[in-house]
């Protein structure tokens, strides 16, 4: 039963992840004044890449990098409950908690960074370095917000955190914390102005530079699932989770659309600027939010 539940969760994350990616391409196309590709495009892209005849590798660590990253994404999906009540779609969330998930979010990227590093491509490593440099500022506001939420709920357990919001969601109870977390979240989703990691005009394709064929397909799939997990995390922490699948879809979609639209009207900061910005504005919001707790 649990196994079926887990598979269902992965399927939902995979499906909605790619669906949202397709929607992202469409929505940003509308902002640009174009028609985007069809929604099926991202699925077919990943399948096409997966069945490519040949892909280059630089050795066993390069081969394992995307696998570790995808495993990290899978773990993230499984350890965040999809719904705030009931038995189904809870995954392994009772075996972990918010702190575990916050750290799991970094595990996959670190594994992939090992793969990127073993390719010996300077652009890849520069991308990773940018990511890690940004991370030190990106996580701080999110951590502050998460700490506030945990202290408020008196637990790091997702179920209790969501239950504590049954009367009023954290977004309204702690608007400053939400604002801090949301700005971080934009960065986690790789949206402007914090999209420094794979900035094509600067570091070629960043960490993805050397990956091709099935490796790229795996990376695309994990990124779709991973972004769904991030949406899920935000919904659970600040919007009280979801009672049923429909509500979950609605909430994640709203969050996702907000991130997409904000992302398409800002220029990219440089790494240093994004670190400085994140340390100043959202961190300050977070600290004030904690003080008001």
């Amino acid at each position: 039963m649990l196994l079926l539940d887990l598979l269902l969760m992965l399927l939902i994350a995979y499906g909605f992840g790619f669906l949202y990616y397709g929607l992202y391409r469409n929505l940003s196309a509308r902002v640009h004044g174009r028609f985007g590709p069809s929604l099926a495009q991202s699925f077919s892209d990943s399948i096409k890449l997966f069945v490519k005849e040949e892909s280059t590798t630089f050795g066993w660590m390069f081969y394992l990098g995307p696998v570790i990253m995808a495993s990290g994404a899978v773990l993230n999906v499984l350890f965040i409950p999809f719904l705030n009540q009931g038995e189904s779609l809870q995954g392994l969330s009772s075996y972990g908690n918010l702190i575990v998930v916050l750290y799991l979010m970094v595990l996959g990227p670190l594994g992939n960074a090992l793969g990127v590093g073993s390719s010996g491509n300077p652009f890849g490593v520069m991308g990773v370095t940018r990511g890690l440099t940004r991370l030190l500022a990106l996580e701080l506001p999110f951590y502050l917000a998460a700490i506030g939420v945990m202290i408020d709920a008196g637990s790091a357990d997702f179920g209790i955190i969501m239950q504590a919001q049954s009367t009023q969601s954290n977004m309204f109870a702690h608007p400053l914390l939400f604002a801090a977390a949301f700005i971080s979240f934009l960065g986690f989703m790789g949206k402007s102005p914090f999209d420094v990691v794979g900035a094509p005009q600067e570091v070629y394709s960043g960490p993805a530079t050397e990956f091709s064929g099935k490796f790229l397909a795996l990376l695309m799939s994990q990124s779709a699932m991973f972004s769904f997990a991030k949406l899920l995390l935000m919904v659970n922490l600040f919007w009280g989770g979801a009672d049923h699948l429909g509500e979950l879809v609605a909430k994640t979609f709203v969050l996702f659309v907000a991130a997409t639209f904000i992302g398409s009207v800002y220029a990219r900061f440089s790494t240093v600027q994004s670190v400085e910005f994140l340390i100043r504005i959202p961190t300050l919001l977070g600290i004030v939010g904690l003080a008001l707790l």
């Binding site: 640009h32 004044g33 174009r34 402007s192 005009q201 398409s264 800002y266 990219r268």
Partner: peptide, 13 residues
Amino acid sequence: QSGSVGLGTVGQW
């Protein structure tokens, strides 16, 4: 110029 700072929307317009 807008593309060089990742603001693709301007370029499309």
